[in-house]
Amino acid sequence: MSRDLVIKDLHISVQGKPIIKGLNLTVKQGEIHALMGPNGSGKSTLANGLMGHPLYDIDSGEVIFSGIDILELEPNDRAKLGLFLAFQYPTAIPGVSLANFLRLAVSAVRAKEGNGSGNDRLIPMREFRRELREKMKQLGIDDSFARRYLNDGFSGGEKKRAEILQLAMLEPQIAILDETDSGLDIDAIRVVGESVSQLIGPELGVLIITHYPRLLDYIRPQFVHILLDGKIVESGGWELTQMLEAEGYDPIREKYGIIEA
């Protein structure tokens, strides 16, 4: 079965205001796409809408993943199909350790239908610990990290690394990285970028949503798209990032007659 993510003529609004206005994009397993756009172009709206955030209203369009339209599915069912969103602003869950959370999440995502819920389907502790330790080692994350409360008091860089660790553990087919580089200094971007690049392979399709091309130095996309006013206005390859690096978004805005919001 195809695990591609196919977005067709998608329209999303937030509190009645249209943000995504007819977006088409296909991300195949094994491909890396970068979706670049200035502030206010709709990048985070797309990310949240794809994952099923209740505050983002889907007005029309289709999002086909694993052969079905996922727009009616709850976020957890999208996750179980193999969709993953690395959040721009991961939420803190005080009192819940990263390890306990991940064990439940991994168990939920790997559980087969009709396999019970909650504690009944938890993967064995030893097995989980071994796997977690392995992945943390691979990503250069300290063991103590697992015992900390999820995102609670984490620095910006730690939050993003925790997101990447979740990505590694949940093993999705399609991962959306929403401004994973935002708020990070150059060193932190390198660490996160290198971590993500380790996870890339033929099984994983990635949609990197970003304002700046910096993260892309570590995760080279094969496809680059420019998002402007809720639509993809240009698609191409690496040369597009070069152009944005050199000239910024103004020439594109001018070309499509879009006045800065």
Binding site: H53, N76, L85, P90, I93, A105, L170
Partner: peptide, 14 residues
């Protein structure tokens, strides 16, 4: 918080 946890595969109740 709910959305975050649900996006990782947890049901709303979980």
């Amino acid at each position: 918080q709910l959305f975050y946890l649900m996006s990782r595969g947890l049901s709303e109740e979980e």
